[in-house]
Design a protein around this nucleic acid. Structure first.
Lengths: 155, 155
DNA sequence: GCCTCATGTCAACTATATTGACTTGAGGAT
DNA sequence: ATCCTCAAGTCAATATAGTTGACATGAGGC
């Protein structure tokens, strides 16, 4: 699917800072890229990409989730979910079966192969976080979490 | 251009945590979204989107940048740059003129209107950061920067 | 006059999303 | 049985964001 991602500022561009917070703003951008770079490269090797990983990630943490609930969590339309989801089913990374009571909905689960890929992709991301946390120590990590929570809830 | 972005996990989904660092992993995702949410909404009102903002952001910090250098920094192909750049020129948010010595290259600058839009969009992002930094104090902010730098340089 | 280089443009393709309209298949209710 | 609802699936059209490849233009340099 996705081509191996381009240089795309592999080297953080040095731009003049017009505001005090410009450095932080750019760090958010490059931080996101730094965290996802290796995971995306791994996924590309498997013929998968970010949307597939998002599906695998959620299903891993919500076994037997129904399709409607998955759509809600991912925040995309069912048509947008359709392609990547079917690919994952065809490749037998996911299974779907009808619920015993609620026959209307289909329940999704990871297969062993799906679990393995989800683990490896997420591990690349966690590894980037782990190294960074180790470098700054526990108090820095706590600060990072606090800031990210505040930003995440900024609605 | 972009439709007003969907709910898309406006409420951070509560998923079981399979690993210690899953919470941090999700925070990176929601943090990025939290920072860009209002900026994207503002840009959409102006009929612009993230790529346009990226161009405006860089040109604001590198006045008289040539197109080739802009392509390098953004990490996209000239063909991909073409559409958003021409829109910005048509809408007179950017000007281009040939360099006095280096007549081969074109130099880009923001117009007043372009500067205003760049400022407002980036302000939405900086505001999210500012509030978060205020909430956690200087040491938390320093921790955040340290972690993000480590992740950004994780190549 | 030719070569190079920066820019511009055309075409075809891929991937990720959207909205709208419609179908299918399973249960529930009368 | 028939009708209604609901979850899921599918088809079509569109937008956005990117890619490669090929080729055109226009300004200097030699």
């Amino acid at each position: 699917m996705a081509k191996t991602s381009q240089a795309a500022g592999l080297h953080r561009a040095s731009l003049a800072k017009l505001h005090e917070l410009d450095a932080a703003l750019e760090l958010m951008y490059y931080g996101w890229r730094g965290m996802t770079l290796k995971a995306d490269a791994y996924l590309a090797k498997q013929g998968l990409s970010r949307p597939h990983h998002r599906i695998l990630y959620v299903v891993a943490r919500r076994p037997d989730i129904a399709i409607g609930a998955l759509i809600e969590i991912l925040g995309i339309s069912k048509q947008a979910l359709n392609r990547p989801l079917n690919l994952l089913l065809e490749r037998k990374l996911l299974t779907s079966k009808r619920s015993p009571e609620q026959h209307r909905s289909k329940l999704l689960r990871l297969t062993e192969a799906g679990r393995r890929i989800e683990q490896r992709a997420s591990d690349h991301e966690r590894q980037a976080l782990r190294e960074a946390f180790e470098r700054v120590g526990a108090s820095g990590a706590a600060g990072w979490m606090g800031v990210m929570e505040a930003i995440a809830d900024n609605n």
